[in-house]
């Protein structure tokens, strides 16, 4: 009998722990998060990211040449030249398409969910 209570207890504990951890992740997900985009081999990787409003997208130049990150449709904002190793942080509020004005074939997209 005691053995069964023990098993049940562990089971209840596991469920509760799972719920707690899951809940924490949920909370963390809703708070402002950081999403990384790497600039490498003449591409934004990943090319498209899905974030929540207020999340920060951090672009880091891991390539061999200088790049930038520039809003594509009206050039509303730009990181300016990012030399190799440099990063640029952007807080996303709404959907945006961006490109590298130095290499206009490099394009990317942020979707705000």
């Amino acid at each position: 009998m005691n053995r069964w209570i023990g098993v049940f207890g562990w089971f209840a504990f596991a469920v509760a722990a799972g719920w707690l951890v899951g809940g924490c992740q949920q909370v963390r997900h809703q708070a402002a998060a950081r999403v990384d985009v790497s600039l490498r081999q003449m591409q934004f990787a990943p090319t498209e990211v899905r974030v929540h409003a207020g999340d920060t997208v951090v672009f880091t130049n891991n390539d061999i040449v200088t790049h930038d990150v520039t809003e594509e449709t009206a050039k509303l904002w730009t990181s300016g030249p990012l030399v190799v190793g440099e990063s640029f942080a952007f807080v996303a509020q709404k959907d945006v398409t961006y490109y590298c004005s130095i290499h206009p074939i490099m394009k990317g997209k942020i979707t705000v969910e």
Binding site: Q41, M42, Q43, D63, I64, V65, H103, P104, I105, M106
Partner: peptide, 16 residues
């Protein structure tokens, strides 16, 4: 090998 993507991007840019 690392230079090839840059060369290809340059080519696409030039064609544009």
């Amino acid at each position: 090998e690392n230079v090839v993507p840059a060369l290809k991007a340059h080519l696409a840019h030039a064609e544009m």
